[in-house]
Structure formats: C-alpha cells, structure tokens
Design a protein around this nucleic acid. Structure first.
Lengths: 159, 159
DNA sequence: GCTAATCATTACTTTTTAGTCAAGATTAGC
DNA sequence: GCTAATCTTGACTAAAAAGTAATGATTAGC
C-alpha cells in the first residue's frame, strides 16, 4: 500500500495554512519553499483543495491562500478523499459495494481483507483533525498508541 | 492510499494455490484464467513469489506452482512486503526511521499520521493467515469487526 | 487605467507502474 | 534422445501518476 505524493503533499500544504495566525495568507512560492516542492506543483494541489472548499484564495498583489474553515473542524479522512479516490482503494472496489472494475465474483477470498483495511483506515483518519497536526505531535501519537494498545489485547488469536 | 495491482493480484494468486488439495499444482494459464489476467502477467507475479520463497514450481509437462509452506503459517504482512515496498509506504519514509527520501525535518506535522497508519495496517495484516482467506470469509470478517468494535470505544475523544 | 503580483487552467513532459512478448531452460513421457 | 508442455528471464510497450510550463484572469496600489 502506498500514500500517493498528492495525498502527502496536499495534506502538508494544509498543515502549513493551519499554522497561520488569523488574517495571514501564504502565496504559492511560499508554500513551495516550505514544502520543498515547485510552485507549479503547489499550485496544482491548492487548486484541488480550493475546488473542494478546504481553502480560499485571493488573487493579485497581497493575495494568497488561507483555510476556508477552522482547522479543528477538518478531519483527515475528508482531506484524503479529495486528494485521492478514497482513503483506501484498489483495482477491486468491492469495499464500496459497486464492483465495477472487479472481474471477480462477490465473495472472492481477499474481499474481507480490503473491506477490513478500508474500515480501520477510515476510522483512524476520521478521528484526526487538521488542527491536531499543528505544533506538537503528542495528541495524534496518543490516539494511535491507544488504538495499538487495544489491538494488542487481540494478540493471542491469529486467524 | 492505494493497494497496488501487484499486491492485489499476487495475493489472489496465492489464495488460488492455497485452495489446492495436497499434491495438486496450477500452471500459469490456469492461474491466469482463474484471476482474469494474462498468463504473462501471472508469470511475473509468480516469479516474485517464487524468489521470495512462498511458492515452489516444477517445469515441463505436468509442471506448475504450489505453496512452499503451509497456508496457515503464511501471514499477509509478509506477502505484501514481497509484492511491494512495505505494507504502507509514502514519499516520506519517516516511519522506517531512515528519512532518506524526506526533505522535511524530523518532526513534520504529518509524521505521526504516517507512522500510526503504518502500525495499524502492519498489525492487522500480521494477524491474518493465507489459510483464513480460503473458503468462508467469516474468520477474517470477525477479526476486523473485533478491531472495529474496539475502535468504537474510542469514539468520544476526537483529537 | 497601468503595472506588478498573484491565482486559475490547460497542455505538455517525465517518471513510475503495469502489462506484454519472445527466446531460452527444464522436465515428463514416449 | 525427442517432443510437447511448462517455467524463467530480460527486453519491450502501454498506461497512470507526478511534475513542469505557459497562457490567461484578477486584484492592490500607484
């Protein structure tokens, strides 16, 4: 499994905007500089995020980008779905119930794996706000450690 | 996030072999037919799995592929790591501790997210054997439902 | 209203992944 | 040993993703 470049850098750019004080904005060259990508590339990512309503922009001198909503009201699962097809996708789209691309019958062997992975990723990302990625990392770490702690209670029964 | 074609179909091919009775084998055209891919493509996947020691093969008439180890001793995390870089990878490889590709400093905002997702995926896949993907799906479903049930106990505290 | 700064949009290029092909090597059975 | 069936391997082609470039539209400030 892979996190695409678009997902990773799109999310990073939003984190940079979440870092801003009220009224501040960032231009494309500024975002590009902060994230180590080209301004053209940043422009493409911001265009997607703009279309999806996560950011607003103003043109001209003193223009730039800023968040369209408070960072503590934006969850990572929403962001990822804008930057890619879904939080988790595969050639077989059985987890959506649609099955368009999948040549296999309904209950192929790996279907429950894809469905299950999709659920736990969606669940984890839907608990994390953009705001929690700003400043210290302790809150997100703690959340994942809590999940991992729970998982360890399952350790004995491998299937 | 995406499950690559190589991961998906490599795993599917192994499931087909796990379905065989003792002493039976499958040829490339047979695997290709079962999975709806070309024999050439199946050949490439089986080559990877052969190199990694998951399957054995015999050439010539009556040749074919079969599992090198019992299906209940093969865990999905091992398989995925052979078919792709890791169970979860991204441009930023901070979760491995190596950081070679990543231009960002050690504590960028999204690092804990990548590390956390990597952990929960690795954890889930390390609980599932190839054998459990054969026949009925109930065991894998039950495992994921158990994980999801635990996650729901966390519901109130979003970060 | 002119100019410089900035975003918006589309087309293009490069890189990576996926998939195909063909020639060679091995084996079972005659 | 001959033949047909089968895997092995590397080179090739096609498709998708990532990244670049260029042109146009908008705005602040003079």
């Amino acid at each position: 499994m892979k996190i695409s470049a678009q997902e990773e850098y799109g999310l990073r750019c939003l984190v940079q905007l979440a870092n801003l004080a009220d009224g501040e904005t960032l231009t494309l060259p500024q975002i590009a500089e902060l994230e180590g990508i080209s301004a053209a590339n940043a422009g493409k990512l911001m265009w997607l995020l703009n279309k999806a309503g996560f950011v607003h922009s103003t043109r001209g001198t003193k223009g730039g980008y800023f968040l369209a909503r408070p960072a503590d009201e934006i969850y990572l699962n929403e962001i990822i779905k804008v930057l890619d097809e879904d939080v988790l996708s595969s050639h077989c789209d059985s987890y959506t119930g649609v099955m368009e691309k999948c040549v296999h019958t309904g209950d192929c062997g790996i279907r429950p794996v894809i469905v299950g992975l999709h659920e736990i990723v969606e669940n984890a990302l839907s608990r994390i706000t953009l705001a929690s990625l700003v400043g210290n990392e302790s809150k997100v770490d703690a959340m994942f450690h809590q999940i991992q702690g729970l998982h360890r209670t399952l350790e004995p029964q491998r299937v």
